[in-house]
Design a protein around this nucleic acid. Sequence first.
DNA 1: GCCGCGCCTTGATCCGTATCAAGTTCCCGC
DNA 2: GCGGGAACTTGATACGGATCAAGGCGCGGC
Lengths: 242, 242
Amino acid sequence: MELAPLATRQCQDCPIRTRAVCSRCSDDELVALEEIKFYRTYPAGSTIVWAGDAMPFVASVVSGCASLTRSMADGRTQMVGLLLQSDFLGDPSRTEARFDVTAVSNVLLCHFDRERFARLTETNAHVRGRLLEMTLDELDAAREWMLLLGRKTAQEKVASLLVIFARRLGQQTPDGLQFDLPLTREAMANYLGLTLETVSRQVAVLRKTGAIRTQGARHMLVPDLDALLGASGDDDDGDVLA
Amino acid sequence: MELAPLATRQCQDCPIRTRAVCSRCSDDELVALEEIKFYRTYPAGSTIVWAGDAMPFVASVVSGCASLTRSMADGRTQMVGLLLQSDFLGDPSRTEARFDVTAVSNVLLCHFDRERFARLTETNAHVRGRLLEMTLDELDAAREWMLLLGRKTAQEKVASLLVIFARRLGQQTPDGLQFDLPLTREAMANYLGLTLETVSRQVAVLRKTGAIRTQGARHMLVPDLDALLGASGDDDDGDVLA
DNA sequence: GCCGCGCCTTGATCCGTATCAAGTTCCCGC
DNA sequence: GCGGGAACTTGATACGGATCAAGGCGCGGC
């Protein structure tokens, strides 16, 4: 086989490398993945899978933002995971989805046939190791979020979420870290265990105290990440979110 | 080697079989584990490891109850995991603890040298598979708990926790499921994101409505698990806790 | 340009849980 | 049995966030 160097391979636009497979993967491994992958877009607001549905694929988020949510019979819902670019969705060994997966913004997913991906993890120690590693990271993130949900104030919750976005999405500018919120106030509320009104008010407070600056409801600028971190209640440089 | 049948092996008192390794494990696998295991007891209230400490072992809970907790600088704490008999503690690939691990009651742990256990998981597909499976179960449990922390009322939270104990610890009697609470009101509060007073009041409410009967603060009888489930806000037969 | 509809903000009020404060019961050692 | 302390219960009050209720803003369609 005549293959281009890894870095310039066709797969480079597909971030599966960074999370499930990584840049240390051999060409053979990438070729195997190449054969079973396909792309699909989901419009904002659409459901990718419902809890309990058959899960014929695993996938990597190429662009956009998706959420995992769990709901109660009376309609109360809690977001239990947030998937941003390069995050991985699904579990090769599970045939059905455990949570609703929804496209928050327009989402482009790179799918892999679940069974064939599972076979790959069996034969490929590197991919398998990455998978366990990712699962453990998600578990840590979930537990970190339990502290937020159980013990933080509304102010701290909102600040914590903004810190996550600033780190994952922020562009460095002369004025500080800059990014566009991928979530509506309602989606933020569902992630933080609050109502949308409370989120709105707390964003206003953070704006007044100077921890953030805004242009419109979604465009954010964080002049001083440490100040925002202070408002989030995390003393250390916490490692939140998968 | 002359080995007794699996079911009567020396390891039978060590529930590592049920969670990390299982009854399908071959004798060879058990022998390998046998060689690296050792027991240790921790008195109620003592700390097993602090977050950030080196983690020289993984372990299985033989008896008693331990908790994983995460705290903030000002002392607010949230329990992020609860370990009961046959639960597994630690992660072979991680050298330091992510959370404080505390003995809630007197705890007997069956330890395994972490590095040697890790080597075993590399060579042994069965043990490795169990490990990933367990991690995924814990992740699901953590996410289920996020719904509880973010969206349930105090009443539903307390009922949910009692359902878990009834299922894991309950003895069937003519009057219903019977068990002793392994947690103090304060520990329950830390797990549920409440205060101990609120927990106490909600237990009182459940007693008045007949969902539970009590003898002293810790001894519980659940005459009708479905009634308690109703109070917990879970419609289905939810699969909480690792 | 202007209309309409999400999305967001802000205000007023309510309610559930936290907080503060006594008591009471249980349990353990002597 | 008796004393002491931890765990628990119960009451009164405070307060943060939910709820209810108007607007305001921004953006896409025509």
